[in-house]
Structures are given as C-alpha cells and as structure tokens.
Amino acid sequence: MHIAIAADHNGFALKSRLIGWLSEHGHTVDDRGSHTEEIIDYPPLCADVCRQVAERAVDRGIVLGGSGLGETIACNKMRGIRAGLCHDLWSTEISRGNNDSNVLVLAAKVLAPERAEEIVETWLTTPFKGGVHARRLRQIAELEEKAARM
C-alpha cells in the first residue's frame, strides 16, 4: 500500500519509527514532513496528506500530533477525507470497518510506540464492511456536498 505520512513536532519521533515499521511490512511511504523536531503548525501538514489521499496519489494517509484532536478536525475539513482518531484497536476497527477511514490520526503523546504499530497494522488490514455503513457514508458525502455549496 502507498501511504502518505506527516507529523508535527509532537509526532516527529513516532512518525520516524512508523516509517520504518511500514517499510519493513512492504508499504511504500511518502514522508510529507515535518523533518525536524522544531515547532511547526499542523494544519498545512494535514492538508498536504489529505490532498494526496483525495487526489489518489496515495492509497491512505497517516497524521500524527500530540493529542491528534486538532489534526482530526483539520483533516475532516478536506473534501473526500474520512479521518479517524484512534487510541485503541476497537476504535481502529470501527474507523475502518464502519467508516472506511482513509486517514488515520494518532496521538503521539498518548500512545506507546508498540501500541501505535498495532493500531496501524489493524487499520491497514481491516476491510470496510459495506452494507448499512455504505449508506451512511453516502449520507455523509451528501452533507459534505451541501456544505460546499453554502
């Protein structure tokens, strides 16, 4: 799978570890920044990863921040993005299985590196269930379309 990944200064170290993990597991990784631990604003990083996903330049995106809350809000402002903030395997399975999330947001200040790797693995391997969930995603897409016309 081709994955775009980005992190602010809070997620820089965990991002570096996840890039190695993803590569070891056969994924192609596009590191979109940040490339240092210097303080940086996360919205442009989120927009960049989400643009890659929305334009289908990559299959999925991963964004890391301190809490992940602001990153989730920023990502979900982008058309066609379904970003899920996941702290555990249950929310990860729901994010993919029910919501077909295409961007995973991780909270670097909350997650141990090993747990983050488990979440990424679960997120990458959990299929979308379809069915009633597909209907709900269509409804969400309709909300997005209406909001774009406001």
Rank of each mutant, 00 (worst) to 15 (best):
Q52D: 15
A7V: 12
E114D: 04
H35S: 06
L85I: 08
G20Y: 09
V49R: 07
A6Y: 09
K109A: 02
H133V: 03
G11K: 03
S95I: 02
H27N: 13
W90K: 14
E24I: 02
C86D: 01
Q139N: 13
M150L: 14
R149Y: 03
S34T: 08
K77W: 05
L14G: 08
A148H: 14
H27W: 12
G11I: 09
V110H: 14
R149P: 01
I5M: 07
D59Q: 14
C50R: 04
T36A: 00
E121T: 15
H25C: 03
G33Y: 01
L18K: 11
D30T: 09
R138Y: 08
R32Q: 12
L104K: 01
S34E: 00
S91F: 01
A112E: 09
T72Y: 04
G130E: 11
E93N: 10
R115V: 03
L106A: 05
D8N: 14
D59P: 04
I40E: 02
L89D: 06
V29R: 05
F128G: 03
T92R: 05
E145A: 15
G33P: 04
S95E: 05
L18H: 11
L85R: 06
V110E: 14
E114C: 00
A83C: 07
R17V: 08
R79W: 12
M1Q: 10
E93Y: 12
E38T: 15
F128K: 00
A6F: 07
A13H: 11
K109D: 14
R138M: 13
R56K: 14
S95L: 01
G33W: 00
I3S: 06
L124R: 10
E142S: 14
L64A: 11
F12S: 04
G68H: 05
G97T: 05
L14H: 06
G80C: 04
V58A: 09
G80L: 05
V105S: 08
A141H: 06
G84P: 04
H2Q: 15
V103C: 07
L104G: 02
R135M: 05
H133G: 06
I81N: 04
E118R: 15
K129L: 15
V29E: 08
V49M: 10
R51A: 15
Q139Y: 11
I81K: 08
R96P: 00
A107E: 03
A6Q: 06
I73D: 01
N98F: 02
F128R: 00
A57N: 13
L18G: 05
N10L: 12
G66Q: 13
A134R: 05
A7R: 10
R138D: 15
E145W: 08
G11N: 02
C75F: 14
T28Q: 14
L137K: 11
N76H: 10
A134E: 15
R17E: 13
A141P: 03
Y42K: 07
V58S: 09
W123H: 03
S34R: 02
C50L: 12
I73W: 09
D59I: 06
T126L: 02
D88L: 00
K129G: 11
G20E: 06
R138F: 10
R82L: 01
L45V: 10
N99D: 09
I119L: 05
C46I: 07
I19F: 07
S95P: 06
D31K: 00
V49P: 09
H133P: 00
E117W: 11
E24C: 03
L22F: 02
R32I: 10
E55Q: 11
